[in-house]
Amino acid sequence: MSTDSAAVEGRIVASGLTKVFGQIKAVDGLSFTVEPGSVTGFLGPNGAGKTTTLRMILGLAAATSGTGTISGVTYAQLPHPGRTVGAVLEATSFHPGRSARNHLRVFCAAAGLPDKRADEVLEWVGLTQAATYSVRGFSLGMRQRLALATALLGNPRVLLLDEPANGLDPEGIAWLRGLLRHFADVDGRTVLVSSHVLSEVEQTVDRVVIIAKGRLIYEGRLADLEGASAGVVVRSPTLDQLRAALAPLHVTITSRLDGSVAVVGATPEAIGRAAWEARVELHELRAGSSSLEETFLRLTADPTGTLEASA
């Protein structure tokens, strides 16, 4: 990627990000790009390395190698980080004894913002009534709203939200969806939102970055993931021979619970021909019809099954 294209205002670029904790490679050579004006889902199962990646991009954790940039510079180089980037990290950052308003005012002071800004963002997230209550009594959903309010204090053009839907009821998720869509579509902001549950963000995001065990699995449009990954279901009594026969096609083969395999990367016609030419007995050959959620689970359960976006 050239330096020019990386320096787009509001673009987030991870390139070769790696984080090693002792023996664990939590993030492993991760590269992806998040564009302004879109909502990008950052997906992966628990422990995949999402939070660690965000912490590196935000300069809270030092990368073992690789870089993360926002608008072409590292977080620490941003001239006004609080007014450029708003971030919420998984574990919500509140003192339980502080009221919601006081919590926000602490950070208004640090950001050099007037105190009335605290009340504005409380209204945006629907917490005006609870402004003077201690965070101790807040539900998880209220905490998520307050965390979002904190991120919005500086009216940032880039939002990084770690599992913001966690603990929200369906109504809250719908509200969040509307808010994030508004940020991206109307304001043209960059929105990166992580989740370990695809269905939480499925209807909100334009693009997805899927990781598992710290590695990139898929980056691209959600719609293309559906098309690219449904795969072909193949059943054969001699799976080893089948694998050998399909090797020249450079496909990804994963086992299914019923003993068949899912082959990704080739059409049923191509698979049938290869099997026939190698004299491999087939008992079933059909285009798969997995749901998006199934695809997500399968992909992230087997990180070797890397897919390239067709777009």
């Binding site: 300069g59 620490a76 941003l78 980080p81 609080g82 971030a87 950052s93 003192h95 640090a110 904190t150």
Partner: peptide, 18 residues
């Protein structure tokens, strides 16, 4: 230590990375 315990240092360091 209250800041480490409740992660309130995070927003602080996000607003002031120095």
């Amino acid at each position: 230590t209250t800041e480490f315990r409740h992660f309130t240092s995070r927003p602080t360091f996000l607003l002031e990375p120095r």
